[in-house]
Simulated assay, not measured.
Amino acid sequence: MISSMTAFARSSRSGPLGEFTWELRSVNHRYLELSLRLPDTLRGLESRVRDLANRELSRGKVDIGLRYVPPVEAASLELNEPALQAVISAAMRVRDHLGAHTESLNPLDLLRWPGVVKSADGADQETLENEAMHALQAAFGELKATRRREGDRLAELIEERAAGVLELATKIGERIPAIREAWRDKLRERIAALGVPVEPARLEQELVLAAQKGDIAEELDRIGIHVKEIRSSLHKGGAVGRRLDFLMQELGREANTVGSKAIDMEITQAAVGLKVLIEQMREQIQNIE
């Protein structure tokens, strides 16, 4: 099962410690890039959030935001006196270093400092952070489920186009013998029109050279192999986006060669069709993890 890198998830968890609401937004990216927005009270969660994201995801640009609403009972604030005194002492020392032109300490700024205000039920910071992480795990579960559902739809689209590539390659392969024979007849007609005698051996040599110049059997075989690898990767699942992107490059190279060697209008048109299907697959694969 493959996963898309484009998804959104929102998870809320309410309880005695308040309400925790996580929002996760994910879009395609070459690597895993995280952008975090955490309230000051829970800013210490950043390393844990990053660790969890790295375990859960492989690629994508992911925005992670948390909104925390303390419980109503927290209206009667309980100060953590040791923490408050430590913050005040540190602030006074900083002010002494800066000189007399510094502004006075703002009490509201002190209250915003993590750990200065205790929660209403006396829960410590670790308990608060653990509760927030439980809600985040649920959000990641929803995000991954959404990415998998989107991945299933992408896999169907890619499979349809891969089947189209294989169908066109098969038609081109079936057309080759008739093209070779038509080329032989055309070459004989041109020689006859010139009225110049040509040795049979020389004629056969020219026919062989022309056949080699327009031979695309190897390219068609490799196209079939690449399509088989694409299907295998889709069936295998996991983080296969980079592998699929590489296979698209190889398919594109083979399609370009088929087009450049084409000595027949039908093959030229089929080569254009191959390129269109490959480009459509490439666009879809950019969203695969």
Rank of each mutant, 00 (worst) to 15 (best):
K186D: 14
L234A: 04
V196L: 11
M265V: 14
M248A: 08
M1N: 14
L66E: 06
L79P: 06
Q286S: 15
V116G: 08
R253C: 14
L108W: 08
A217Q: 09
A9M: 05
A135R: 02
T41Y: 02
A169I: 02
H29V: 09
A163H: 13
L17Q: 13
R43Q: 12
P39R: 00
I223R: 03
E199I: 04
S26C: 15
L128C: 02
L105W: 07
L108V: 10
F20P: 05
L52C: 14
A132Q: 02
V272A: 08
L45C: 13
L277E: 06
L17I: 07
R242T: 11
N28Y: 06
S3C: 13
N287Q: 03
D185V: 09
E167K: 11
L84P: 07
L203G: 06
H101E: 14
P200W: 05
L247W: 14
G237E: 10
S35H: 13
R95E: 05
R112T: 03
H235W: 03
A132G: 12
Q125S: 13
V87N: 10
A91S: 10
A53K: 00
R37W: 03
S76T: 06
I216R: 01
E129K: 04
G238H: 03
M5I: 00
M5W: 01
L277S: 13
A75V: 09
E279L: 10
H101S: 11
D121E: 10
M281C: 14
S3D: 06
I285E: 01
L187D: 02
E78A: 15
